[in-house]
Amino acid sequence: MSQPISVSHEMDLAWRYASGEAMERFCAGLTDGRIEALRCAACGLRYLPPRPFCGDCRARLTEWVAVGDEGKLEAWTEVQVPMLDAGTGRPRATPFAIGLVRLEGADTTLNHFLAETGAGRLRVGARVRARWRSERAGTMADIECFEVIG
């Protein structure tokens, strides 16, 4: 079989994403080191990320509630293979750990990096706390990661 001819393309595109009102307020809160969720008046679910609508009740979300920056580690993993980092466009250094954190005051879990690697400290049920950056810009990266505190 002859060699295939290949035509290569490089994509360099940009999109302007509107945050929406709920996320705009949430991000403003992050700058102040504050986390807030939206609570459904019908079912009581406290949503992170905050969003316009409760999908179960089919009702608009309007009630803001405070959420702590500590909670429980519901799931964790340590990734060994280089994954594309959407921020830098380059593979992330390995190993890195991520987890699902249920913050006090929220009913959904939050997906974020974990400070520790290694199964020693990471376990389902561990108490974790957000490690905030000193300089914050109103993005989820204002939280550098979550640390196990107990």
Binding site: Y17, A18, S19, G20, E21, M23, R51, P52, F53, R60
Partner: peptide
């Protein structure tokens, strides 16, 4: 230019 997010606009 609609300043809303897609979910807000669609809702």
């Amino acid at each position: 230019a609609d300043s809303r997010s897609i979910p807000e606009m669609v809702l």
